[in-house]
Write a protein that binds this DNA or RNA. Structure first.
Length: 736
DNA sequence: AGCACGCCGACT
DNA sequence: GTCGGCGTGCTC
């Protein structure tokens, strides 16, 4: 008798392909769970996939069905909570499920090869080691002695803690292992945190204490806004909250930070204050092996705190107890390609589903968040006072550039303020949001302007390199000496950039040590860190730079911040430009006078009486936010309405136009609630050779928008033009 | 997205 | 006569 083969089940597999459908496969005899990673034959190639469902039958004709090739059954499958969160996002942001799922995994788990993370070890003393004495180690083997002492004290040490002892701990540990004193285990059991003793918590002020008490009094899901100016001690509140929430359990916390090089600083602070809580970081400059390892430590529950940038909002955390989103207003939480999610919003959904509290922290909350705090949807926690007793808020003033003559872009008052700082041996910082020498190259005779051929932008003069550059597409050419239009040799670099400002300052203050900080001067990997170090060492008198300098480091000897040119943001067609400018200027102000020296901020503007500056002078976020919210309400902009954007681009504008016009007709047919506007062209009409336009959809609720998109997007995918141009849907867009 | 198939212009 | 351009269509 022929034995009947075991019946094969059908697996629904999600693949990393831009097709919003699942593919059925025979299970091939593998005992596969939902959430498991599999390798499948797909057309002529092999693909990695995630099993999203199992069934006995398939709609697909059996002749077409193939069996999976491999199942990574020894790996834990993606857990149902993370899976459901990603499914929700794929749905909400109109993105194929398979691509959403796969994009959330570390790179190594997106390959068809078995994923190996670098093996990491935990070390402990052997019986021999325990019986030994430190004096048996030679005195000059200093690192071995330190490691031995640390192991005696802590019992087990994970290798991530060992660089604190010495950068060259590996060799020394090797020696200890060879002499039989130390044994190593591959890590699974215990990721210890830090070898140093906990830095004791500083006393909290009244506001901080009140904030903590209110958070502790709630249970289950609860959203909080922690509103406090720079230096008011938000981080301290986070840390004590973490400490209390994770003290007597095995829970985990997710801490989201913006995409800047600030992560290491926060990480170091957390480690020194909470050494007993194993912590991993997840950000873009981790190597593949380390990223995978850290992700797995989070997934397995060993890591208790995950500090990461936006993508880490999708990290599997089996025992999530709380979520923190630091600097929640920061634009880097919004993914600007592929699945255009907002990590802060996803974090909110995640906390709600997990029934855990979430705190959003900011000195200048986004108006969406502020509105939610005003309506009582979020609890509002305010830190009024600067936690550092001696420090005081800087004086902020405007310089009316209508009434004075500028010298190469600088007003006499600002020049005088700089001179005083040099005299007092204090540092200054000048902000200008343009890099290069000058933003425009103009012919005085015929008014020709050097423009980019691929973008609707002006070419920026980089005098030192003698180049003209497009800051949008990277196009670069030699500087022209003669007007290509009329032959005139009288070409003028017009306007000011960082390079020109640096040159002007060098002429005005020949003795001053001036440092420029922009993308051009920090191209080298360690350049920015070196510059910051030099500022701390008082080797620099004046910093000239772009937004890059707004965040992060505190310079105790820096007492003057000058803002050279911001007026363009005041009247931008993007309704969020003013909100961003206010946040940026507040942040910039935080750079001045952190220590016992009072700081001063001087802003050059042609609109000194603009209400943005009036609020800024009083350090009054609340007044500004409330006035902005009134404007938003009148205009029916977010947070009083919800938006979605259909962006399209092609080398020919007619294609874009035809597609968007058809989409417009469809959208208006499909929804009577959502208001769909005629196609609009963005400020940058042409970018990298592509003609662009978008369709704006506005609704009273997220649901209305969602209902429209759910019908509209599949119809657009089937549109005959859809494959001839590039198009994307952006739900809750931040920039236009 | 890949990777095929497929039908029209300049080359060993 | 072939090599190769990228338009269209499919992948369980």
């Amino acid at each position: 008798m022929i034995p009947t083969p075991p019946p094969m089940g059908i697996l629904q597999v999600a693949l990393d392909v831009p097709i919003d459908s699942l593919f059925d496969y025979l299970d091939g005899g593998f005992d596969v769970a939902v959430g498991q990673r599999v390798v499948v034959p797909f057309g002529r190639r092999r693909q990695i996939g995630i099993v999203v469902g199992k069934s006995a039958v398939s709609e697909v004709p059996s002749a077409k069905l193939k069996a999976i090739e491999t199942a990574f059954v020894d790996e834990p499958p993606l857990d149902p909570d993370t899976f459901a969160l990603l499914r929700f996002c794929a749905d909400y942001y109109q993105y194929p499920l398979g691509q959403a799922l796969l994009a959330s995994l570390p790179g190594r788990l997106r390959q068809t090869e078995p994923a190996v993370s670098r093996k990491q070890y935990a070390f402990r003393l052997s019986a021999v080691g325990l019986a030994a004495d430190i004096e048996q180690l030679p005195r000059r083997k200093l690192i071995q002695r330190k490691l031995y002492a640390a192991l005696l004290e802590h019992g087990v040490l994970h290798e991530s803690a060992l660089p604190e002892i010495s950068a060259s701990w590996r060799g020394a540990m090797q020696g200890l292992q060879e002499s039989g004193w130390v044994e190593a285990d591959e890590v699974l059991a215990g990721l210890s945190a830090s070898v140093s003793a906990a830095v004791p918590p500083p006393p909290l002020n009244e506001d901080q204490t009140a904030a903590l008490q209110r958070m502790q009094a709630s249970e289950g899901f609860k959203a909080w806004l922690l509103h406090g100016i720079t230096g008011s001690g938000k981080t301290e509140v986070y840390m004590q909250w973490l400490q209390q929430m994770l003290a007597d359990n095995d829970g985990q916390a997710l801490v989201l930070v913006p995409e800047i090089n600030l992560t290491p600083q926060l990480e170091a602070r957390f480690r020194s204050r909470l050494p007993h809580l194993p912590m991993v970081a997840l950000h873009s400059n981790l190597g593949e092996a380390e990223r995978l390892q850290n992700w797995r430590l989070a997934q397995s529950g060993i890591a208790r705190i995950v500090v990461g940038t936006r993508l880490s909002v999708f990290t599997p955390l089996p025992r999530l107890r709380l979520v923190i989103v630091d600097e929640e207003h920061d634009g880097s939480y919004k993914q600007q390609d592929s699945m255009r999610y907002h990590a802060r919003d996803v974090a909110m959904v995640r906390a709600q589903r997990a029934k855990v509290p979430i705190v959003l922290g900011s000195a200048t909350p986004s108006l969406e968040t502020w509105h939610n705090a005003q309506t009582g949807k979020y609890g509002l926690l305010t830190l009024q006072n600067r936690a550092v007793a001696k420090s005081q808020l800087p004086r902020i003033g405007c310089i009316d550039t209508n009434r004075v003559e500028l010298q190469d872009g600088l007003s006499p008052a600002l020049i005088e303020a700089l001179r005083q700082r040099l005299e007092r041996k204090e540092q200054s910082l000048l902000f200008i949001n343009r890099r290069g020498y000058s933003p425009v190259l103009l012919c005085n005779a015929c008014h020709w302007i050097a423009s980019c051929t691929r973008c609707s932008s002006r070419l920026v003069v980089h005098l030192r390199q003698s180049r003209l550059r497009c800051h949008h597409c990277g196009h670069e050419q030699k500087i022209v000496r003669q007007c290509p239009s009329c032959g005139n040799a009288d070409l003028h670099p017009t306007g000011h950039g960082t390079q020109r400002l640096e040159e002007t300052l060098a002429r005005l203050f020949p003795m001053a040590r001036i440092q420029r900080v922009d993308r051009d001067s920090t191209r080298r990997k360690e350049a920015l860190a070196d510059i910051l170090q030099a500022v701390h060492a008082d080797e620099i008198d004046i910093l000239v730079g772009t937004q890059m300098l707004a965040k992060g480091h505190d310079f105790p000897n820096l007492t003057l911040v000058g803002v050279v040119d911001t007026d363009s943001a005041l009247f931008s067609p993007d309704f969020r430009a003013a909100e961003r400018l206010f946040a940026q200027l507040m942040q910039v102000s935080g750079r001045a006078g952190r220590a016992d020296k009072p700081g001063e901020v001087l802003i050059q503007t042609t609109f000194p009486e603009h209400n943005l500056f009036n609020a800024l002078r009083k350090h009054d976020y609340v007044a500004y936010a409330d006035s902005q919210l009134q404007e938003r309400q009148l205009a029916q902009f977010p947070p009083y309405a919800f938006l979605a954007l259909l962006r399209a681009e092609a080398n020919q504008y007619s294609l874009v136009q035809d597609f968007l016009n058809d989409a417009l007709v469809l959208a208006r047919q499909l929804s009577e609630h959502v208001l769909t506007y005629d196609p609009v062209r963005p400020q940058m009409e042409k970018l990298k050779g592509m003609e662009r336009a978008y369709l704006l959809m506005q609704g009273e609720s997220r649901l209305q928008i969602q209902q429209l998109l759910r019908q509209l997007v599949p119809q657009l995918r089937a549109h005959p033009l859809a494959s001839k141009l590039r198009w994307t849907v952006d739900v809750d867009p931040l920039e236009f």
